[in-house]
């Protein structure tokens, strides 16, 4: 295992060392010490490696991740795993706003709470949050699934496309065009698999599914006078 201490080396040096693994993988296991809330830690990885960040990370941690498994043993700032393509990012603490924003693939697990705009414009990633999520989460979510074991804030799934949302707790309010939907067997299966992959012990039947009412897909000519 290779250890990099961010009190002695810069984030840029760390990220370069991790990027070099994309060309030739010489080390599968990495440990990052003393992150101290610095931004852009472990961004843009493109190799099947595991990275353990021991402490709190700042903004955009694990952004644009491909293939790598990244675990943050602490909290993260805004934009964790933004635009992730594949791999897995696990946050042991809380995440700030815009967790998993625009992510195309892979799995993001947040063991604490996530702030506002969790999964905003997500495009195919799966996100599992053990705690609560903030307002405007999954805004314009296009594909993938968002699982919330706690409660959701205001305007969940506003202007939603086809992301599947599962919430166990309460939803403060639903956004425009987001509605509660029937949990069919295929959804129980999908949720069971997601909870298993995330290592979260919850009963899938206790969740409610939310999805798009598909009323905003096309412009309605009757509304033309509103503009």
């Amino acid at each position: 295992m290779k250890t990099i201490n961010l009190e002695r080396q810069t984030v840029r040096e760390l990220n370069q060392a991790l990027h070099d693994q994309a060309i030739e993988c010489t080390e599968r296991e990495w440990e990052v010490l003393d992150p101290k809330g610095q931004h852009n830690i472990a961004c843009g990885l493109d190799q099947n490696i595991s990275v353990d960040i021991k402490g709190h990370a700042g903004y955009y941690c694990a952004g644009m991740n491909k293939k790598a498994h990244i675990t943050v043993h602490g909290n993260v700032g805004q934009g964790v795993a933004e635009n992730m393509m594949s791999g897995m990012v696990r946050v042991k603490g809380d995440a700030s706003q815009a967790a998993g924003a625009t992510a195309h693939g892979g799995l993001l697990v947040i063991e604490g709470n996530a702030g506002a705009r969790c999964g905003i414009s997500m495009k195919g990633a799966d996100i599992v949050v053990k705690g609560d999520i903030g307002h405007m989460s999954c805004f314009m979510g296009q594909a993938g699934a968002l699982v919330v074991c706690g409660n959701a804030g205001d305007a969940l799934g506003d202007s939603l496309y086809e992301t599947h949302i599962y919430v166990k707790g309460t939803v403060k309010s639903l956004g425009a065009d987001c509605i509660a939907k029937e949990m069919r067997d295929e959804h129980i299966d999908e949720l069971t698999a997601l909870l298993n992959r995330a290592g979260v012990d919850e009963d899938p039947s206790a969740f409610t599914r939310y999805g798009s009412a598909r009323q905003l897909y096309n412009f309605k000519v009757d509304n033309a006078s509103a503009y």
Binding site: G37, Q38, Y59, Q97
Partner: peptide
């Protein structure tokens, strides 16, 4: 909307507030 950041920290000795966690380390 809360897009401007804020983070709080509390111990028995103090309550601290900062735009980013970096300032509390």
């Amino acid at each position: 909307i809360a897009c401007k950041p804020a983070v709080m920290a509390e111990t028995d000795d103090y309550v601290a507030m900062a735009s980013e966690y970096q300032a509390l380390t």
